[in-house]
């Protein structure tokens, strides 16, 4: 197993922490992992992205040009990364604020309305976990129990009372994800 993922969106959406939880989940499952953020001036302008690799084998390059999966949370990131997903790969995106939808026909494309669901339940903080839940539904190599363990490892102890609501959000994401045909 070797899964190369790009997660991209606005700074503050929980892009980096979603990647971190994903990486920690991989460790819980004895996988090799790497987490490489974009850092520097581009963050201040608004977008953030992180490359996460999960693998059975030693990971080579943490810097990649193409990806097996893209988790995309805003228009700029969709414009930038749609072309970087390998043919046959997965594109999962939140429709919130998207005016130009994906145009490629050689990808498996799914939508998750995580932003509107987070607004509906009045808990913006679990937005990224709804997205992550959708991803876990589409890719079955990570078990939910390990992701919850990853959450425990990733969150400081003072936030551990929030683990239940985050685990709940993962399940919500699994239910809400739906295919998109262009």
């Amino acid at each position: 197993m070797n899964e190369e993922i790009i997660i991209a969106g606005f700074g503050g959406q929980g892009v980096l922490s979603m990647g971190k939880i994903l990486a920690y989940s991989g460790i819980m499952q004895n996988l090799e992992v790497s987490w490489m953020p974009s850092y520097g001036p581009e963050m201040r302008g608004g977008t953030a992205n992180v490359t996460v690799i999960l693998s059975d084998d030693r990971i080579s390059s943490p810097i990649l040009n193409t990806f097996d999966s893209g988790i995309i949370l805003n228009q700029q990131s969709l414009d930038k990364f749609e072309c970087k997903i390998k043919p046959g790969g997965l594109l999962l995106y939140d429709t919130n604020g998207i005016t130009r939808h994906p145009s490629r026909t050689d990808l498996q494309i799914f939508q998750i309305e995580a932003a509107s669901e987070a607004a509906r339940i009045d808990n913006q903080k679990v937005f990224n976990m709804i997205v992550l839940g959708a991803y876990l539904k589409l890719k079955d190599f990570l078990e939910l129990k390990y992701v919850v363990q990853g959450l425990e490892k990733s969150l400081p102890k003072r936030y551990h009372h929030l683990i239940d609501s985050n685990a709940e959000a993962l399940k919500t994401g699994m239910e809400l994800v739906k295919p998109y045909k262009n």
Partner: peptide, 10 residues
């Protein structure tokens, strides 16, 4: 360098 410094691994 900035890559090895900023990246997270096991």
């Amino acid at each position: 360098d900035g890559i090895i410094g900023q990246m997270m691994e096991k």
